[in-house]
Amino acid sequence: MATTTLPEFLRARRERLQPEPTGRRRTPGLRREEVAARAGVSVTWYTWLEQGRGGVPSDEVLERLARALELDETNREMLFLLAHARPPPRRYTPPAEVTPALQRVLDNLRAPAFVKTPTFQIVAWNRAAVAVMGDYAAVPERDRNMLRRVFHPEAAAFLPHGDDMRRTCLAAFRVDIARAGASEEAAALVDELMATSEEFRRLWAENELHTHGVRSRRLVRPGVGELVFEASMFSVDDSDGLGMVVLSPADDASARGVEQLLRELEHSTG
């Protein structure tokens, strides 16, 4: 099947819009001149665009077309992909709330898992995460942050390879906040850690960038020793930047350690 073209996409979205009730119309959707007026472009140029000969629109014009055609975020992204072969610039919006369905996904996992925002704030978790990493509900909300945790002076007690953890977390954090768009929350977090952590200042100056990928993570827990995990991050659809991190035990000993910690948690909480 041939891929959708920009002219086909524009026509299809225009024809789906409901015009104002002004009498009988022979054609579905809006007319080209109505879309052009909404977008603030000439009718001739918009007509050429639908005919595949209007040139390459700028980002600003594409944004106006997206509003004129009442596109949601998925269709706005498609508009930019068809016109420029790249996604649109990110517009910062506060991360969406965790839905009951997403929480059920977490709760059905026996491996530690949690949901984070682009600024690495942990906003949801499961019992395995509590068993392995502690009860997030028992600490102030500001302390439920991955960067604050790994750059905390006491992190060495449970991170046997803390330098690697800090380095990879910070590199992925820089990518995530760039994708999400500038925010006061991200700027404030960076300023705070720059002021309080010499290690953060050193690594921040290196300007290392990479995505999360699948990373090996090692944690030390009393009674079970060192646990080895493969950390994977999954984007959550329609959530404005939320990501689910799953820590899969990398060997049998680590899997047994997680199960032991879960049994101890269940016993202590009844």
Rank of each mutant, 00 (worst) to 15 (best):
V190L: 08
M194C: 05
W204Q: 07
W204N: 05
L189V: 09
E206A: 05
N207D: 15
V190M: 08
L193Q: 02
A188C: 03
E208D: 11
A205M: 08
T211Y: 06
N207G: 12
V190K: 03
S197Y: 01
R202S: 12
A205E: 14
E199P: 00
R215I: 06
S216H: 06
H212K: 15
L203N: 04
T211W: 06
E192H: 12
A195L: 07
W204V: 12
H212V: 06
E199R: 13
M194D: 13
S197F: 08
A195E: 15
V214N: 14
V190D: 07
H212F: 12
L193Y: 05
E208P: 00
V214K: 09
F200Q: 10
L189P: 00
R215P: 02
N207C: 09
D191L: 04
E208G: 07
E208R: 14
N207Q: 15
E192D: 11
T196G: 03
V190H: 08
E199C: 11
H210F: 12
R215Y: 04
A187P: 00
L203G: 01
R218C: 04
L189D: 07
L189F: 01
L193C: 09
N207P: 01
E192I: 00
S197D: 07
T211H: 13
E208H: 11
V214H: 10
R201Y: 05
N207R: 15
S197H: 07
A205Y: 04
L203V: 06
V190E: 02
S197E: 12
L209Y: 14
R217N: 11
A205K: 02
L189N: 00
N207K: 15
E198S: 14
R202H: 08
L193T: 09
